[in-house]
Amino acid sequence: MTKFIELVVNGLSVGSVYALIALGFVIIFKATEVVNFAHASLLLVGGYITAVFHDDIGFLPALAAGMLTAAVVGMLVEFLVLRRGRTSDHGVLAIVTIGVDILLTTELVRRIGTDVLDLGDPWGSQSVTFAGITIPQTRIAALLVATVLITAFLLAFRYTTWGVAMRAAAEDSETASLMGIKLSRVSLGAWAVAGALAAVAALFLTVFPTPGLDRNTSLVALKAFPAAILGGLDSTTGALVGGLIVGLTESLATGYQDQLHFLGHGLSGVAPYVVMVLILLARPAGLFGTRELTRV
């Protein structure tokens, strides 16, 4: 029983980090209808800046710097690259983000080189034990911080002017722009927020029990894709739920891999995708996504 509870807590904690990444992904999609394949590199930028600066300026300032840098990079991508796209075909713009991802990731990986970078977090390998369950402090911190950020964001989305503007732009961009909403500001804002969230996610992906930030960290961001999809690409609630589902699936698949041995080894990599496909079969637009209604 304790094993199960530990797996669940672990899964929810990692899942909340995936939710942060997926949320950023969904925000960009809602605001600009672009599938951002460059999200992994935003994550890596944020983590890298935090790692490089935490020795000089302290952990929290470095984290802030990382978030700011990732936000700025996100805005630059939107401004320089996507806005210039002569075609409005969003499928093609998604391909541009693949190119951007390759550019950013190659340069960052070149800088990281063969090192494993520490992000200077204050929790280290300390853990909390109660009722026979041991949970690292980093996992609890991840869960708390992610919850706070996501709640803050959802509230902002619902009640602030910016949030309303973004929802309006996502709903119907033409009308929104006619109503005086600056679409360019909305998309810049979306990319900035996504970058900042990704930077926070980078932190929690590289603390204990992983040794630190290295060239493979960006691959983890890939797991946010099934999370965003199975929740529904245009639903922020969906991103949250999707992230948790992916985290739980991964954790349980790893924890019970002996019992699931007949399905082959290394199940935790493929299980989230299988779950995603199953959900898509039942709900083709994800759990909370809006089904496209086309006008004839």
């Binding site: 690259v81 002569r86 093609v92 390759i102 550019l103």
Partner: peptide, 16 residues
Amino acid sequence: RIIYGAAVVAVVLFLP
């Protein structure tokens, strides 16, 4: 890799 990424971006943006 850099040239490959740049080529993808450039072709898609400037050569529809």
